[in-house]
């Protein structure tokens, strides 16, 4: 059974990290980052060709994480494979010991390094969640055919973006994902706490916090420019002006970024319904232990 699921069920405030697989066949770098994180987090996300840039596959990366003794959360998008490829990869990943899957639409291919490629989007993220659930609970492929034995029994995750529009629909769309079978949720990184709190209030109104484990997404900032860039250029992102100002004024921006992240975690722990944090420090994995330490998240509980 998924260790992540056990942690949630044990009532722990769960912490996950993230590793972006390399643009090469270097498995060592994944193992290196995983080994760095394992002691400080309960799971490690492996992104699936994020921003549509070709990278080592999330399945293979998840296996590298397993080899270090870590708990992989394999991301799977709908951009690059049809329902045949998706179900085949789910079987393959589970056969290799991967127990957690995070279902997403995937960034449009025009963002990446193969802008002339053809996207797939045979099924969407909500249909993907449904597919993973049906394979597990109904032992059925999408076509209705029975999975006779060894059905994949994934712990199913989804994402939610409280910062995209239409805002009023965001909570209802999360509800659709949960109804489809999502058991845990990771949000887009929070750089506008006010909006996130508004989102959580609506989540509680619909009782969704009782139906799935909601994890707040966080990203430690390195510079005010990174924050300003995201505010201006990343679709579906909201960045509070105060945050940019604070980073601008900081004598040591990186330290300030960590400080902000730690404050956010402490604040988030007080928000009813939030069951964990997902720290996205891609290309800055080594900072996660310090954040976890300062936020009082250590030592991570060991499950027997």
């Amino acid at each position: 059974m998924s260790k992540l699921k056990k942690m949630f069920e044990a009532g722990q405030f769960v912490v996950t990290g993230e590793v972006g697989p390399p643009k090469s066949a270097d498995g060592e770098v994944v193992r290196h980052h995983a080994a760095m994180l394992n002691e400080y987090v309960d799971g490690v996300n492996l992104t699936d060709n994020q921003t549509a840039i070709v990278r080592l596959s999330s399945i293979a990366a998840a296996v590298h994480v397993l080899q270090t003794g870590g708990e992989p959360v394999m991301q799977m998008t709908c951009r690059d494979r049809n329902r045949i490829g998706i179900q085949s990869d789910l079987l393959g990943a589970y056969s290799l010991g991967v127990k957690n899957v995070l279902c997403l639409s995937g960034d449009h291919q025009s963002f990446g390094n193969h802008g002339t490629s053809k996207n797939v989007f045979d099924i969407d993220s909500i249909q993907l969640i449904q597919t993973v659930k049906n394979m597990r609970d109904e032992r059925q492929f999408l076509c209705g055919e029975e999975i006779k034995d060894h059905e994949p029994r994934f712990f199913i995750g989804c994402v939610a973006n409280p910062f995209a529009d239409p805002f009023e629909w965001r909570v209802l769309r999360l509800e659709k994902k949960i109804n489809a079978g999502a058991e845990f949720v990771q949000t887009q990184c929070i750089l506008d706490m006010e909006r996130f709190e508004l989102f959580m209030a609506k989540v509680r109104e619909r009782g969704l916090h009782e139906k799935a484990y909601i994890m707040a997404g966080l990203m430690p900032l390195k510079s005010w420019r990174a924050a300003a860039y995201m505010q201006k250029n990343v679709a579906g992102m909201l960045v509070a002006d105060e945050l940019i100002e604070r980073m601008k004024k900081a004598a040591n921006p990186k330290e300030e970024g960590v400080k902000i992240c730690v404050e956010q975690i402490k604040h988030i722990r007080q928000i009813p319904g939030v069951k964990g944090v997902h720290i996205m420090a891609v290309n800055w994995e080594e900072i996660v232990p310090a954040i976890a330490e300062q936020a009082g998240l250590l030592p991570r509980p060991q499950l027997v």
């Binding site: 969407d124 995209a164 529009d165």
Partner: peptide, 17 residues
């Protein structure tokens, strides 16, 4: 993305990502 249960997380200010 031809999504049938949209919008995805890339929708902002009425525009596509």
């Amino acid at each position: 993305k031809s999504i049938l249960n949209g919008p995805c997380g890339g929708s902002q200010n009425g525009k596509c990502e």
